[in-house]
Design a protein around this nucleic acid. Structure first.
Lengths: 187, 187
DNA sequence: AAGAAATCGAACAAAATGTACGAAAACGGA
DNA sequence: TCCGTTTTCGTACATTTTGTTCGATTTCTT
């Protein structure tokens, strides 16, 4: 690959990720990116059609690291590669995220429709905590705030799936799926 | 409340939600909203400071319906109000969403950082499905696609929580929480 | 009917967008 | 090192959006 391209892309990526740590993705302009990267306007558009294009490219690049070469991750965190379970696979992913936490934090803090979901999630977590009398705290070592955030977020995921599949499942069934998969049957 | 204000806000809301069903939130401009609502530019800014402000207002209005008056929801869907469990509460919420599915669909389809999460989720679901040999299909009536989407999304929620709390939990512990709350211990 | 409040619309500066083009620079293969 | 190719630069440009201002006008409330 042409060195100039590599240099230009690197400059754009760096500027973009830097900006991402300062402000929301939605408020970052192409102008700011090229100013920060110190490249010509036309140069940017020679590589990316839109700002979304750039984000996609960055995501793609990031994830190529996350999901490739589990073995490497294992090697660097001393897991026996024979124990190839989902749990370990997920653990390896988490280690990778942790190793590059700065980059991922920037991306993870993007938001937009999140305004909506965060409303929903907050309300749900409160709602769930209100029904907690049947739940024995202390029996497990799962932090209460994790449990509430997680269940709220997981329920949102169920709702998202529900809408993706055109609400063809009845609410009762959906809730039963949710309850079954989260072991919240008792509530 | 002044009728003019009510009319103006209604016009803005209608135009906004209409646009929301045609394009992504991020690409909707104030210009389009006031054109569609047929109101003066200054009038819009008299009610909302920014486009995000408007979205927040719409969300707030929408959720005030979702989380208020469970009793009403119960009445209209014949639940015995004595059975006040979390499951029923969630079911009622789902019914409400279903009743107003058109409005909610519009909001739900917003995206932005979703570009990132959807990448992640897709990969995760694939990963999980690869470890499914231990899972007995057919034993439950939970659809396979729901299970995969859900577990992927739920794991993302765990990761989000992880980052919100500054990665202070070890990857192993986080995965064990996830496994415990989703009954995926066996994998 | 009268005073208050909201809307209109036109105008404005500032900024961003996406595109175009020729000149200059950097590249890679021979 | 040379030469054709590719990339970058810089500038320019038309268009669009943004957020604000202000007086005139309309609509509301009482």
């Amino acid at each position: 690959m042409d060195r100039r391209i590599k240099r230009t892309k690197a400059a754009i990526y760096a500027a973009f990720e830097e900006l991402l740590s300062e402000k929301k993705y939605e408020h970052i302009t192409v102008q700011e990116i090229i100013d920060r990267a110190d490249i010509g306007r036309s140069t940017f558009y020679a590589h990316f059609e839109t700002r979304d294009d750039l984000l996609k490219a960055v995501c793609s690049e990031l994830f190529s690291h996350v999901f490739s070469d589990h073995s490497k991750a294992e090697a660097s965190h001393d897991f026996s590669s024979e124990d190839d379970t989902l749990k370990n696979a997920l653990t390896h992913i988490l280690y990778h995220l942790k190793d590059d936490r700065k980059r991922y934090s920037r991306i993870f803090s993007c938001e937009s429709s999140e305004i909506f979901w965060s409303y929903f999630r907050k309300q749900l977590s409160e709602l769930i905590s209100g029904y907690n009398y049947g739940y024995e705290t202390g029996k497990t070592d799962i932090p209460e705030d994790f449990r509430l955030d997680f269940l709220g977020g997981a329920f949102i995921e169920a709702v998202k799936w529900w809408f993706r599949t055109d609400l063809k499942t009845s609410p009762e069934k959906l809730v039963s799926y949710f309850a079954a998969l989260t072991g919240q049957d008792q509530l």
